[in-house]
């Protein structure tokens, strides 16, 4: 394969016995591109990563790391990995762990140690990892993955356990390395933290790729309705419901939905109700609704 992508996955299927964890997934990542893999628990995200690393053999489909097969020497040199759960030896210091992995990757420790500064734990470099907080251990894991400026970074739920400030710093670091040409494929459960920090997203559900593209496109294509919740005045909920239709919720309220372009018309209709309305609440579809839409879950969370 002679394409420009550092990662290309074609019609990939991975099985564990009777369970099909990844089912006919196609995906590409170009150098310098940041792609997020979203999916519910058990969607197949980690399985996809492990297959890209060559730990699992595909049942069908093709995989290429910039033209070489996963798990080969060249592929291992090109790819860096941060697993979703990793516990470094507690008795070693951050600097020792980074030195260890730098040597394994054939990078001089001198070149790798400044990465502790990059991820913001340089102060703790000479302390045992056993004394690190969860976020610091996560940062050390990221520093380990950044060693040697890999061509492809595979990060499995790298921001779980990070506070909002740390998350922002984390994405800043990713942005810097992607600008230097590193391709990033990361997995996450939440679309909202990824907004503006990622070029493209791919949504997996039950092993299948449900949607793929830039976030703004996906959100437009989803065409999700706006929800208007009207709280009726004392004793007037029947009248409001009879007039607007929609759905009655907890005694005094009515919920109606409309498309984005009908919003103004819907509000005008509401105004005609006058003092029958005690309060109005408008909910625009948020990113998590977009995610639920594509992953085959309704906004209420039930499977369609």
């Amino acid at each position: 394969m002679t394409d420009a992508n550092i990662l290309s996955v074609e019609e990939l299927t991975v099985r564990f016995g009777a369970v099909t964890a990844v089912d006919g997934v196609s995906l590409t990542v170009a150098p310098g591109e940041r792609v997020a893999l979203l999916g519910h628990n058990g969607a197949g995200k980690s399985t996809l990563f492990k297959t890209v690393l060559g730990f699992l053999k595909p049942a069908a489909g093709r995989l290429s790391i910039g033209g070489v097969i996963p798990g080969s020497d060249a592929a291992r040199r090109a790819v860096s990995y941060l697993p979703e759960q990793v516990a470094f030896p507690k008795a070693l210091t951050g600097a020792e762990i980074l030195t260890h992995f730098a040597r394994l990757k054939g990078v001089s420790p001198k070149a790798a140690l400044p990465l502790l500064e990059v991820v913001g734990i340089a102060d703790a470099a000479r302390r045992a990892v056993g004394t690190y907080s969860k976020g610091m251990r996560q940062r050390l894991g990221l520093a380990q993955a950044l060693i040697g400026a890999p061509r492809l970074l595979l990060l499995d739920e790298p921001t779980s356990g990070l506070d909002p400030v740390s998350r922002r710093e984390f994405y800043d670091v990713l942005e810097a390395s992607s600008r230097a040409g590193t391709a990033v494929l990361l997995s996450s459960h939440s679309l909202s933290e990824i907004e503006n920090r990622i070029d493209r997203i791919a949504i997996l559900a039950k092993g299948k790729l449900r949607a793929e593209g830039a976030l703004s496109d996906l959100s437009r294509r989803a065409g999700l309705p706006i929800r208007i919740r009207i709280e009726a005045a004392e004793g007037r909920v029947e009248a409001v419901h009879a007039y607007l239709g929609g759905e009655r919720v907890n005694g005094r309220s009515v919920v109606v939905t409309c498309r984005a372009e009908d919003k103004v018309a819907a509000l005008a209709r509401l105004a005609e109700l006058g003092s029958d309305v005690a309060d109005i609440d408008i909910a625009l579809p948020d990113l998590d609704d977009v995610y639920r839409h594509y992953s085959g879950l309704t906004v209420e969370g039930a499977t369609q």
Partner: peptide, 13 residues
Amino acid sequence: ERGTLALVLATPL
């Protein structure tokens, strides 16, 4: 169990 084997085997080792 600690997840470090996956990390180590992702390197050229």
